[in-house]
Design a protein around this nucleic acid. Sequence first.
DNA 1: CGGTGGTTGCCCCA
DNA 2: TGGGGCAACCACCG
Length: 604
Amino acid sequence: MNKNRRGQSRRHPLRLPLPAQNSAVRSQINGSHCSSPPPHCQVASCLQLPQFAGAHTRVTTPKSTNPPPAMDAATAAMVWFRKGLRVHDNPALDAARRGAVRLYPVFVLDPRYLRPEPAAPSPGSARAGVARVRFLLESLSDLDARLRSLGSRLLLLRARDDVADTVCAALKDWNIGKLCFESDTEPYALARDKKVMDFAAASGIDVLSPTSHTLFHPAEIIEKNGGRPPLTYQSFVAIAGHPPEPVMEEYSELPPVGDTGGYELLPVPEVEELGYGDISQEELSPFRGGETEALKRMRESLQDKEWVARFEKPNGDPSAFLKPATTVLSPYLKFGCLSSRYFYHCIQEIYRSAKKHTNPPVSLTGQLLWRDFFYTVSFGTPNFDQMRGNKICKQISWTENEELFLAWRDGRTGYPWIDAIMIQLRRWGWMHHLARHSVACFLTRGDLFVHWEKGRDVFERLLIDSDWSINNGNWLWLSCSSFFHQYHRIYSPISFGKKYDPNGNYIRHFIPVLKDMPKEYIYEPWTAPLSIQKKAKCIVGKDYPKPVVDHETASKECRKRMGEAYASNRLDEKPAKGKSSNSSPRKRQLTPNSAKTKQLKRSS
DNA sequence: CGGTGGTTGCCCCA
DNA sequence: TGGGGCAACCACCG
């Protein structure tokens, strides 16, 4: 498999056509590289907001006034890959190779991310299921092949403990003068990158950290919105405007890799070598990682222009699994195998030639804007990934019930539609968006009333497209903790799937024990007469679990609890008028006692 | 303060 | 397949 991919890559160097009318813009961008990077490539200090001070340390450009590094250092550059595992539209790679006599393309394997966790509920590390680990390794292997076709290669290092330490050591040992890496706004990444940037600053190494994972830099949007992240999609879209053009330079070659001294350079391991035990499951994720696969998949998705122009996300079929109803490009966007800006502009190109097309929020471009929306809100919201201390999150007394949670996690709730989705998650690391909605609603406000953070953790580990901002954002959404508040709209674990897949083919595929259950009962097998259960070789309570809750009564109870929680949150936010009592944080904010207050929303 | 809109609910009816 | 009722939330806007 790898050999094939590598071979193909060498024979057919990547060609990525940009729309003709973009050529003027493209040459502008290219020209601008001679002096300084294009505007969106800079993490400009003017974009930094007070609350994010420290998020980015000083970033120097090639015009830096730092003491000149040694002659060889000035010409040695490192491009540090983390996400952004691609060659196309990669401003960090582009910046690193310019003027470099030697180029060190580095990826650091993180033992804390990859180390096998035997106690985990499914094969993989504590933080990533085996499906996503494999996707990552495939992406690295493909990236290596792409770089080799350009006369370079990927330098795969293994961190002993801390990734930042490993990068810093290599910077020093290889006498690097310029370091380039894609900006990453997740909290974990910000802390890691700060460490490296501090080291670089102290060592006189130029650092360039362009924005290219998302369409926009979250800080840019937040600044445009007066210092606060826009909390509705519509306001986000209105503020965002048009994303920058992708940087689509075509390389014939990259600068050669320099001497790596005594460093052990690893080949990209196969997932079987990482010690996750027996992973020869009956079925694994059908989605292969890598830029080559990403571009192929994108082209195939965009081939049907009519489909692109008419795409409406809410109308997709969550039970379609042989041919998913969406593009399944999310894992490629997550790892940066596909550039969101390139994808966006390819869609726009199709829109231009179409008579009519759908629009955000439901359109394909709308989906990319949702991605940026959640990146922006998560960047501007402290404690975004938890309920406590999160100002945009409703405070709800979720019940602690480990038994119910485990039944949900392991796909044995007794609701075949829910269980099939959770099994698809575990095996494939991917399921349709609306399927995610079904199970997220079921776990939280719909049936089990378990904390959304518990479900978030399961998704985060198992999804091949798991993405900190988007995953947390959607769990806030589905649990009616933020963004979305119509908690009486509950997905039925029976009728929702049935309307798309009345025969239950999706269930039969992922839960083989139910494959002979007549379609009249497959969504509620506990209602099947015992004779039917026997005939289908599936006795409910023995071969397949009884439902853990009764949806009718459970959802009613959930509605009631949500109503109470919302009322309680209203009280916290707007204390009774007469009371001069102490101050919720919100109330203090609204007290007109400082100039800052003017920037805040006023409720009067 | 009141009106309106919000990517993706369910059920029933025509 | 599309509309209304159900019961009714919040954020935003004027």
